[in-house]
């Protein structure tokens, strides 16, 4: 464990807690893409298949349980909660899952480190995580106004992956045989997807203006 990875995990944890806080306190999910939340639940479900068979550490198991629990409860809130689901804007959140899930599945079947079910599922979860934010970014472009909790959510998600890249660089130089192209490329693609959002986020923060994404 290094400081970059710990900071990355804490930032990732903060992003889901910010989201749960928003939904739970103001009983609204306005501006949140259910599609992205469902994709993240799928990411964790396919990545943590070995949560009970491959014990790494107490920290690792606890964090996996938190991520699984929070992502599925966010989906439940938006879909099932009697008050929250009314603020879900399904006419705007129209990104088709399959445009994302199928290419990731095909790619995971073609490019993986071992052709076993768990390895393919794990690789699929990496590719899926890289693009899972797309429905949310599309929704933000459409609704154009970004309330600061949603902005913080996307910002923290991007920051977590950027910190993970620093972690991979650190581990590459400090551990031998630490070479995992699939993880690195998927992580890099994911971080680049956030790059333009970061740009506008900092612009609005610097000018102390409301965050507006260009059409």
């Amino acid at each position: 464990m290094n400081i970059f990875r710990l900071a990355g995990d804490m930032t990732h944890l903060a992003s889901v807690l910010v989201l749960l806080l928003k939904i739970h306190t103001i009983k609204s999910c306005a501006g949140i893409s259910l599609k992205t939340q469902e994709l993240y639940a799928l990411v964790f479900a396919t990545r943590y298949l070995d949560i009970f068979t491959n014990y790494i550490s107490f920290y690792n198991t606890i964090m996996k349980l938190i991520f699984l629990g929070s992502s599925f409860s966010i989906v439940w809130y938006i879909k099932r909660h009697k008050i929250v689901h009314r603020s879900y804007d399904k006419d705007q959140d129209t990104f088709r899952h399959w445009f994302i899930v199928l290419p990731c599945l095909v790619l995971a079947l073609l490019i993986n480190e071992r052709f076993t079910f768990k390895e393919v599922m794990w690789t699929f979860s990496l590719y899926l995580e890289a693009v899972a934010i797309l429905p949310q970014l599309v929704l933000l472009q459409r609704t154009r106004n970004i309330d600061n909790l949603t902005g913080q959510y996307v910002f923290l998600l991007g920051a977590y992956r950027a910190l993970y890249i620093l972690n991979w660089i650190y581990r590459y130089f400090t551990e031998d045989h630490y070479i995992h192209w699939i993880t690195w490329i998927a992580g890099l693609v994911q971080t680049l997807l956030y790059a333009d959002f970061f740009y506008y986020y900092f612009q609005s923060w610097k000018n102390n203006a409301k965050l507006e994404l260009p059409a």
Partner: peptide, 10 residues
């Protein structure tokens, strides 16, 4: 397990 060091990440 040491088989897959990368799987120690979340």
């Amino acid at each position: 397990n040491s088989r897959h060091p990368r799987k120690d990440e979340l």
